[in-house]
């Protein structure tokens, strides 16, 4: 397949916190970088997030979390993605996530997590490079 097709990213707010400013800023930055960003709004369950990611055939899922539930929600989304045969989708995200937790999540297979104050260009570059790497590694048909 031609890899000039746009990168598709799902940006979702998982869990119960209503702080969606970060998610919206990230969605706008990815859009302005040429990505097709599916934004699904607030209070998404892991099941809803994974269902949307599969239907939309996205390259990456970005979760925004400020509730402290990241050690539950990230592994759950990852587990559901893998169970659906979609472990090739990059799971990344951001919010208030302590470095120790981020390291443990990375061991499980979660991508980089971005805290407050991250330059948007850094995040965009990461998504672009990581998706390019995964596409080159050959997504399953």
């Amino acid at each position: 397949m031609s890899d000039e097709r746009p990168i598709r990213v799902l940006v979702a707010k998982a869990g119960l916190d209503g702080h969606d400013r970060g998610a919206k800023v990230v969605a706008a930055a990815l859009r302005d970088a040429g990505c097709e960003v599916v934004y699904t709004g607030l209070r998404q369950t892991p099941e809803q997030i994974v269902e949307a990611a599969l239907q939309e055939d996205v390259d990456a899922v970005g979760l925004s979390l400020h509730s402290g539930a990241h050690m539950t929600l990230f592994p759950r989304v990852l587990e559901l993605l893998k169970a659906a045969g979609a472990g090739d989708i990059l799971l990344t995200g951001g919010g208030i996530i302590p470095a120790d937790d981020a390291a443990r999540l990375a061991e499980m297979g979660v991508g980089r997590l971005f805290g407050p104050g991250t330059p948007l260009a850094e995040l965009v570059t990461y998504v672009r490079d990581e998706v390019a790497r995964r596409r080159a590694a050959g997504r399953t048909t």
């Binding site: 746009p6 969605a27 302005d32 040429g34 960003v37």
Partner: peptide, 11 residues
């Protein structure tokens, strides 16, 4: 201009 899109209908 840049080809990007924000797809928000699922909300």
């Amino acid at each position: 201009f840049h080809g990007g899109a924000l797809l928000g209908d699922r909300i």
